[in-house]
Amino acid sequence: MTATLQKKICMLGAFSVGKTSLVRRYVSSVFSDAYLTTVGVKIDKKAVDLDGRTVNLILWDLAGEDDVNALRLSYLRGAAGYVLVADGTRPATLDVALSLRGRVENDYGPLPFVLLLNKNDLPDQWTITEGDMIGLRNAGWWVRSSSARTGEGVEDAFIDLASRTLR
Protein backbone atom coordinates (compact mmCIF):
# COMPACT_ATOMS: atom_id res chain seq x y z
CA MET A 1 0.00 0.00 0.00
CA THR A 2 1.20 3.52 -0.68
CA ALA A 3 1.53 6.09 2.05
CA THR A 4 0.40 8.88 -0.26
CA LEU A 5 -2.99 8.50 -1.89
CA GLN A 6 -2.78 8.18 -5.68
CA LYS A 7 -5.63 8.40 -8.20
CA LYS A 8 -5.41 7.48 -11.84
CA ILE A 9 -7.25 9.96 -14.04
CA CYS A 10 -7.59 9.40 -17.80
CA MET A 11 -7.94 12.09 -20.45
CA LEU A 12 -10.35 11.01 -23.21
CA GLY A 13 -11.57 12.64 -26.38
CA ALA A 14 -11.21 12.97 -30.13
CA PHE A 15 -7.84 13.93 -31.57
CA SER A 16 -6.70 17.53 -31.40
CA VAL A 17 -9.28 18.64 -28.82
CA GLY A 18 -6.54 19.79 -26.42
CA LYS A 19 -6.13 16.90 -23.95
CA THR A 20 -2.33 17.17 -23.83
CA SER A 21 -2.54 20.98 -23.65
CA LEU A 22 -4.99 20.77 -20.72
CA VAL A 23 -2.60 18.45 -18.83
CA ARG A 24 0.36 20.73 -19.57
CA ARG A 25 -1.63 23.76 -18.44
CA TYR A 26 -2.68 21.99 -15.24
CA VAL A 27 0.65 20.32 -14.38
CA SER A 28 3.18 22.86 -15.70
CA SER A 29 1.10 26.03 -16.23
CA VAL A 30 2.31 26.33 -19.81
CA PHE A 31 0.64 26.39 -23.23
CA SER A 32 1.99 25.98 -26.74
CA ASP A 33 0.20 26.64 -30.02
CA ALA A 34 2.17 23.86 -31.70
CA TYR A 35 0.05 20.74 -32.14
CA LEU A 36 1.92 17.49 -31.45
CA THR A 37 -0.20 14.38 -31.66
CA THR A 38 -0.04 11.85 -28.81
CA VAL A 39 0.81 8.24 -29.58
CA GLY A 40 -0.22 5.65 -27.00
CA VAL A 41 -0.34 7.26 -23.59
CA LYS A 42 1.66 9.92 -21.81
CA ILE A 43 1.93 9.82 -18.04
CA ASP A 44 2.14 12.88 -15.75
CA LYS A 45 1.72 13.43 -12.06
CA LYS A 46 0.17 16.31 -10.16
CA ALA A 47 0.02 16.49 -6.37
CA VAL A 48 -3.05 18.29 -5.03
CA ASP A 49 -4.20 19.12 -1.55
CA LEU A 50 -7.76 18.03 -0.84
CA ASP A 51 -9.13 18.86 2.58
CA GLY A 52 -5.62 18.84 4.03
CA ARG A 53 -4.70 15.58 2.41
CA THR A 54 -2.13 15.26 -0.40
CA VAL A 55 -3.40 13.28 -3.35
CA ASN A 56 -1.23 12.39 -6.34
CA LEU A 57 -3.24 12.55 -9.54
CA ILE A 58 -1.65 10.20 -12.05
CA LEU A 59 -2.76 11.66 -15.37
CA TRP A 60 -3.03 9.31 -18.32
CA ASP A 61 -3.14 11.43 -21.43
CA LEU A 62 -4.49 8.99 -23.99
CA ALA A 63 -4.09 9.27 -27.75
CA GLY A 64 -7.17 10.84 -29.30
CA GLU A 65 -9.72 8.74 -31.05
CA ASP A 66 -10.13 9.09 -34.78
CA ASP A 67 -11.83 7.24 -37.61
CA VAL A 68 -9.02 4.69 -37.79
CA ASN A 69 -7.70 4.39 -34.25
CA ALA A 70 -10.30 3.52 -31.64
CA LEU A 71 -9.54 4.11 -27.99
CA ARG A 72 -7.89 1.17 -26.24
CA LEU A 73 -10.26 0.84 -23.33
CA SER A 74 -7.66 -1.30 -21.55
CA TYR A 75 -5.80 1.92 -20.78
CA LEU A 76 -8.58 2.79 -18.35
CA ARG A 77 -7.92 -0.20 -16.13
CA GLY A 78 -7.72 0.98 -12.54
CA ALA A 79 -8.81 4.55 -13.36
CA ALA A 80 -10.53 6.45 -10.55
CA GLY A 81 -12.15 8.89 -12.97
CA TYR A 82 -11.75 10.54 -16.34
CA VAL A 83 -11.87 13.85 -18.13
CA LEU A 84 -13.88 13.89 -21.33
CA VAL A 85 -12.66 16.63 -23.66
CA ALA A 86 -14.41 18.07 -26.70
CA ASP A 87 -13.41 20.98 -28.92
CA GLY A 88 -16.08 23.69 -28.78
CA THR A 89 -15.16 24.79 -32.28
CA ARG A 90 -15.65 21.28 -33.77
CA PRO A 91 -19.15 19.97 -33.06
CA ALA A 92 -18.28 16.41 -34.15
CA THR A 93 -15.87 16.07 -31.23
CA LEU A 94 -18.77 16.37 -28.79
CA ASP A 95 -20.34 13.35 -30.46
CA VAL A 96 -17.05 11.47 -30.00
CA ALA A 97 -16.99 12.41 -26.31
CA LEU A 98 -20.55 11.21 -25.82
CA SER A 99 -19.70 7.93 -27.54
CA LEU A 100 -16.57 7.41 -25.41
CA ARG A 101 -18.49 8.01 -22.23
CA GLY A 102 -20.97 5.28 -23.18
CA ARG A 103 -18.25 2.77 -23.99
CA VAL A 104 -16.33 3.48 -20.80
CA GLU A 105 -19.46 3.06 -18.72
CA ASN A 106 -20.21 -0.22 -20.47
CA ASP A 107 -16.80 -1.62 -19.58
CA TYR A 108 -16.03 -0.01 -16.22
CA GLY A 109 -19.33 1.13 -14.78
CA PRO A 110 -20.23 4.65 -13.66
CA LEU A 111 -16.87 6.28 -12.94
CA PRO A 112 -16.69 9.95 -11.95
CA PHE A 113 -16.00 12.18 -14.96
CA VAL A 114 -16.12 15.78 -16.11
CA LEU A 115 -16.79 17.10 -19.61
CA LEU A 116 -14.68 20.02 -20.78
CA LEU A 117 -15.70 21.95 -23.89
CA ASN A 118 -12.27 23.29 -24.69
CA LYS A 119 -10.94 26.25 -26.72
CA ASN A 120 -13.41 28.83 -25.42
CA ASP A 121 -10.76 31.43 -26.24
CA LEU A 122 -12.00 31.16 -29.86
CA PRO A 123 -15.51 32.62 -29.45
CA ASP A 124 -15.93 33.50 -33.13
CA GLN A 125 -15.48 29.83 -34.06
CA TRP A 126 -17.50 28.42 -31.16
CA THR A 127 -20.27 26.07 -32.27
CA ILE A 128 -21.57 24.48 -29.06
CA THR A 129 -24.76 26.23 -27.99
CA GLU A 130 -25.68 27.16 -24.47
CA GLY A 131 -28.71 24.94 -24.99
CA ASP A 132 -26.41 21.94 -25.61
CA MET A 133 -24.60 22.59 -22.32
CA ILE A 134 -27.83 23.06 -20.40
CA GLY A 135 -29.13 19.78 -21.80
CA LEU A 136 -26.05 17.90 -20.61
CA ARG A 137 -26.17 19.53 -17.18
CA ASN A 138 -29.82 18.59 -16.87
CA ALA A 139 -28.72 15.01 -17.53
CA GLY A 140 -26.51 15.28 -14.44
CA TRP A 141 -23.20 15.92 -16.19
CA TRP A 142 -20.49 18.21 -14.84
CA VAL A 143 -19.91 20.36 -17.91
CA ARG A 144 -17.70 23.41 -18.28
CA SER A 145 -16.15 25.36 -21.10
CA SER A 146 -12.42 25.71 -20.78
CA SER A 147 -9.30 27.04 -22.41
CA ALA A 148 -5.89 25.46 -22.16
CA ARG A 149 -4.55 28.70 -23.63
CA THR A 150 -5.90 30.95 -20.87
CA GLY A 151 -6.32 28.33 -18.15
CA GLU A 152 -10.01 29.14 -17.71
CA GLY A 153 -11.93 26.25 -16.18
CA VAL A 154 -8.94 23.88 -16.10
CA GLU A 155 -7.99 23.65 -12.42
CA ASP A 156 -11.61 23.67 -11.29
CA ALA A 157 -12.31 20.64 -13.47
CA PHE A 158 -9.43 18.55 -12.12
CA ILE A 159 -10.09 19.51 -8.50
CA ASP A 160 -13.79 18.74 -8.81
CA LEU A 161 -13.06 15.38 -10.38
CA ALA A 162 -10.37 14.52 -7.80
CA SER A 163 -12.77 15.38 -4.98
CA ARG A 164 -15.40 13.10 -6.41
CA THR A 165 -12.95 10.20 -6.73
CA LEU A 166 -12.47 10.38 -2.95
CA ARG A 167 -16.14 10.01 -2.09
Binding site: A3, Q6, K8, N56
Partner: peptide, 10 residues
Protein backbone atom coordinates in the same frame (compact mmCIF):
# COMPACT_ATOMS: atom_id res chain seq x y z
CA UNK B 1 3.72 2.45 -6.60
CA UNK B 2 5.50 5.28 -4.75
CA UNK B 3 8.54 4.81 -6.98
CA UNK B 4 6.87 3.99 -10.30
CA UNK B 5 3.66 6.00 -10.17
CA UNK B 6 2.75 5.01 -13.75
CA UNK B 7 1.80 1.60 -12.31
CA UNK B 8 -1.09 3.12 -10.36
CA UNK B 9 -4.27 1.26 -11.20
CA UNK B 10 -2.49 -1.58 -13.01
Amino acid sequence: LEQAFFLEGL
